[in-house]
């Protein structure tokens, strides 16, 4: 006996929308968003590593790291006016952050819709690890820390901040135990985020090949470890008084002399005049 086929009507979790130009259409798709997240993540990973490598100049002394800061403002030499390229890089990184966060937020909303009612008994995860399940939290911590870090050392809310004297600004800031612990905790969160992100990136981009598949996890863990060890070393070594503020006169082309320890610097005018 023929029976009428009853077609079930499962509701879609998103509305059908009119077709848009392809970059928009591509970004609307979750696979496209993940691709964008992977690429922006890769950009930010590049930033994190170059930031770390640059900061390691702290261990070469005040002059070296301050010259490095000046070199960043001055790149690429006389080809462009001062700070132009730096601002291009800053805007590019800001855009990468913005798109990374936007994609993360919208994908999370989609995923919540895709499981509107969760399991009522405890789940037993087989493969998902702590890092992968806490991406949204580690991400938020890193974002909060980024704003704090910019306020502290770039915009100059730190103690005795003197524009252009990266060395002492950093050391004065990290001498405060509370601030040092913020840096340590935030970098551990960053490491956690990278442990999953630097692996996940390969999958999202479709970089999957038996020759490198085993390497991808090692890369992510190694990368995260490198970033954590490097970045945590700064607050730690300052707290252990291995790195101290400079005393007396150190002649650099950047900042004028500055009294040591907790004395309030007096050379604001000249420094700010030179370095807008």
């Amino acid at each position: 006996m023929a029976q009428a086929v009853q077609r079930s009507t499962v509701a879609k979790i998103r509305k059908d929308r009119r077709k848009a130009p392809w970059p928009v259409e591509f970004y609307r798709s979750a696979v496209g968003k993940k691709w964008v997240m992977a690429l922006s993540g890769l950009m930010l990973m590049g930033f994190v590593v170059s930031h770390l490598v640059g900061n390691l100049k702290l261990y070469l002394g005040r002059e070296e790291i301050n010259l490095y800061g000046e070199a960043l403002r001055d790149m690429p030499g006389h080809l462009l006016p001062r700070t132009v390229l730096l601002w291009v890089v800053r805007i590019g990184l800001g855009a990468a952050f913005a798109v990374h966060i936007h994609a993360a937020v919208t994908l999370t909303q989609t995923n919540r819709k895709a499981r509107s009612k969760n399991y009522q008994s405890p789940r037993d995860y087989l493969a998902a690890n702590y890092a992968s399940r806490t991406m949204r939290y580690s991400g938020v911590i890193v974002l909060a820390y980024l704003i704090f870090h910019l306020a502290d050392l770039t915009w100059g809310a730190g103690p005795h901040h003197l524009r252009g004297d990266a060395y002492n600004n950093l050391v004065y800031s990290l001498q405060r135990p509370l601030i040092a612990s913020v840096y340590v905790i935030a970098n551990l969160a960053l490491g956690l985020h990278l442990t999953h992100g630097a692996w996940s990136m390969f999958q999202s981009l479709g970089v999957n090949n038996p020759r490198i598949n085993a390497f991808r996890r090692h890369f992510a863990r190694g990368f995260a470890a490198l970033v954590v060890v490097g970045n945590v070393s700064f607050p730690l070594l300052v707290q252990l008084h291995v790195v101290e503020p400079t005393c007396g006169k150190v002649r650099t082309p950047i900042a004028d002399e500055r009294p040591c320890a907790t004395a309030i610097p007096e050379a604001h005018e000249t420094a700010e005049g030179n370095h807008p």
Binding site: I13, K34, T110, A114, R115, Y125, L126, A127, M135
Partner: peptide, 21 residues
């Protein structure tokens, strides 16, 4: 197929739970 999938289901965050299950 990707488009239809996305109108019903969530997105991949590379946990690997699916492969294990």
């Amino acid at each position: 197929m990707v488009d239809t999938m996305e109108s019903y289901f969530g997105s991949c965050t590379n946990h690997g739970e699916c492969e294990a299950a």
